[in-house]
Every structure is written in C-alpha cells, then in structure tokens.
Design a protein around this nucleic acid. Structure first.
Lengths: 221, 221
DNA sequence: TGTACATCAGTGAACGCGCGTTCACTGATGTAC
DNA sequence: TGTACATCAGTGAACGCGCGTTCACTGATGTAC
C-alpha cells in the first residue's frame, strides 16, 4: 500500500535522501493516500489538502492529475470496481465451472473484497460522487462488475423448477442485495462482535451464500 | 415534518408574525432540520450551523439542547431506531401470528422504513457517530430493534428440518444482511432504475423476502 | 556530445468561505410571597 | 392581584481552523539540431 512507486529510472537519478522536485508517480501516490484517509475518516472526511499533505506534496499539486476533489474520489471508486471485477472473475475461474459453484464463489469474493478493502468499498457505494454519469469510465467499470453477478445468475437458470418469483432482474437484485448487505454490515462495523477472525468471516460468508442460493433454487434457477 | 411544534400556550401568547425570543420546541425543530439536511447532503454534509440557520436560530442555540454536533446526530439516529422498531412491531401485529408471516412482515417493514426514511437510515448506519458506546440510549434503541429480527428467526426455528448451517446467530445475520442490503441499495440510489414506484418496491421487497425465507427453510427453521 | 528550448510537474502564497465551539449577554418565563 | 427575582433559552460576536481552488512562478525533463 505505502510502497514507493517511483520509477526505477527516477530512483537511479536521485540520491534517496534528497527530495525530488518531480515525484515520479504522484497519481498513484494520491490514490493510495486517499484510500488511507478514507480508512481513517470515512469518504466525506477526506480533504484534498490532507491527501496532498499525506503524499508530501503541495496543495495545488493534485490538480495536475485530477479535475478536483470529486475527480480524485471518482478515480478511487473506478479502481475499486475494476479490482472487484477481477476478484470475482478470479474466484469464478478457480471453480469447476458449475453454475452453483460459480455463484457461491462470486458471492464470497464480493464479501471478502469489501472486508479487505473497506475504503474502496465505501467510496464505490457512498454518496460522495454525486452523479456517476459525469464520470463515464466509472460508470462503465461499475456496470462491468454488476454484469458478472447477473451472468452468474443467468447461468444458473433452470426453467424446469417451479414456484416463487422468476423475474431474472429481481432475482439478480435478491442475490446482489444479500452479498451487498453482508458486505455493508461488515464494512460499517455492525458485525464486529461476529467476525473477529478470517475463519469466522468465511463461515459467515458461506452460510449467507448458502442461504441465498437455496432460496434462489426455488425460483426457476 | 415541518409542522410547527410550538405549544398551544406559546401560540396564544404571540401574534403569529412576530418572531418569538423563545422558540417553543427547538429540540424537535433541530432534529427535523438535521433530517432535512441529511436528505440533501448526506450525513457528513450536515453542519450544526446550517441546522441552526435552517431552524431560524443563532449558531449557539443548539448547545442548549445537544452536547454538540455528534450529540445531535446521535439523537437523530436514536429516534430512527425507535421508529424502525415500532414499524416492525406494527407490521408484525397485522399478521395472523404465524412465524413465517411475521418474518416476511418484518423484512418488508425494514426495507420500507429505509425507503421512506433514507435520512434516518443513513445516520443510523453511517460512520458519523464514531463510537456508539458513548451514547448509551442510542445503543439501547439499536439493540431493541435488532432483537425483533432475532426473535422472529427464533420463532421460526423448526429443529426437525435438516441440512445447511443451523447456528442461530449466523442465520439471524443472513436474514438481517438481506434486508439491510436491499435497504442500503435503495437508499444509496443503486436501484433507481428498478424501484420507480411503490408497486415495484413491493414486488421487489416480497421477492427478496421470499428468497431469503426459502433459503432459511432449509436450515433448521 | 553539447546546447537551446519547449513542455511538464511541481511550488507556495493567496482568495474567500463555512465550520464547531465559547463567551458574556439579555429577554422571556414562571414562581414565591 | 401585583411584584421581585431566579431560572431558562435564546443572542451575536469572536476565536482559530482547515477547506477547495486559483495564480504566477520555477525547477526538472527530454528532445531537436
């Protein structure tokens, strides 16, 4: 996280003690700093000045890389959605390819992503970015991540089963809501009594994913 | 919401045009103002000065009624938990008393509360109140509300069924996470495409509650 | 290889602003006699 | 019923602060010749 991201070229040029005028990879450093501050204060507590200070740079420097405060947060969120997408894809790939296994892997990946990256998660779903449509690449990243869940549901579809709601969009939302709810409760610390360890998180994640999968099994899936 | 809460005695005393030195029910007015501002800006965007301004009162006046900004927000949250509890109880009371019906009624009441009172919901679960244990009456209100869900789950318990996780606490969390997830997605506007109308909200609420109930039916409930 | 120069990524001072909280105060209220 | 007075719920000015953003600037970089 706080690893120096200076290019090796930059490292060769400078003696390590001396502060460089050019940072090397300020954009990356600002994103990391923003994440660190979200962790401490929550998304609304982030100030651009503090992020710059944290990165060891003047208050005006971030404007070379982002349109402003909201631009920085949108970039953080976008990065988060991309990471979430790749985690879900990876989890999917580790299964035997059965629809059920994929579904469970995706749900658990979603929850684990939130638990391991609470700052990202908060920015991704928080109210700080007032209008996502003003950040098209963010919107795109977010859509691609949702699509994975929707696809997994579609893949589970078994029209031979009966009973319950069969509207695929509502079933998608049911699944998403469950993953998202557990993720949110964890990130907001509402379950700190119940998820002290990784093992407990896993037990809980599996249990919840089980329940929702079984619920969906009745609904034409 | 913005109804005047002056006591009738106060109204008798003053001609309506004249600004009273004493407000009459400033505490109530400040809570309402805070809610209105959360609606617009999110919980972190609330400022005590703006709340006072909104209530037509000087910046120092709120300190007669609350310890400070966090005190005000804690009072808002506490009020929210009490309202949620009473909604869930009322919804429960309208059923025929069967465990299943109660469970569904409670879940739907939870989601509808969030959809109708997004400001309250955000403050109740947001990170603004850094440490709930510093506000004992808030904690108490929150615990009483959770207990209703936990009790409903316990009432559903049917030890004759087999399969799946049977830890009651994890099952409680599964149910809560699902209700909470749907509520959160709605409040954060993630589902604005899907829940334009009350009818759609009801369909979705029922669908999700169904899914989770059916999932739980497999788990010793 | 050396040099002139355009471009880029920073600086740091300054702007106007709204914030939370404290303070001495004052006007209204209600109660004891 | 009238009045003195304690209490209460407000006022408004002031404090020090950190914020987002703009601005003219300067030092570093890399490229063309």
């Amino acid at each position: 996280m706080t690893v120096s991201n200076k290019s090796s070229a930059a490292l060769k040029r400078k003696s390590p003690g001396k502060r460089a005028y050019h940072h090397g990879n300020l954009r990356r450093a600002l994103l990391d700093a923003a994440l660190a501050m979200v962790e401490k204060e929550g998304p609304r507590g982030v100030s651009l000045r503090a992020v710059a200070r944290f990165a060891g740079v003047s208050p005006a420097a971030p404007y070379r890389h982002f349109a402003g405060k909201e631009g920085l947060l949108a970039a953080v969120a976008e990065e988060g959605f991309r990471a979430l997408e790749s985690k879900m894809r990876a989890a999917c790939g580790e299964t035997d390819g059965l629809a059920l296994a994929e579904f469970r892997a995706i749900g658990y990946a979603y929850v684990r992503f939130a638990a391991s990256n609470p700052s990202h998660f908060r920015v991704m779903f928080g109210p700080e970015i007032s209008d996502k449509s003003e950040h098209p690449s963010l919107r795109e990243a977010s859509d691609k991540a949702s699509q994975i869940i929707a696809d997994a549901i579609a893949k589970c579809q078994r029209p031979d089963l009966e009973g319950g709601d069969t509207d695929p969009h509502r079933l998608f939302i049911s699944a998403w809501a469950t993953f998202h709810g557990l993720a949110t409760l964890i990130v907001d610390g509402q379950l700190s009594d119940s998820v002290g360890s990784d093992a407990e998180l896993e037990a809980l994640g599996n249990s919840v994913t089980d329940v929702i999968y079984r619920g969906l099994s009745f609904s034409g899936l």
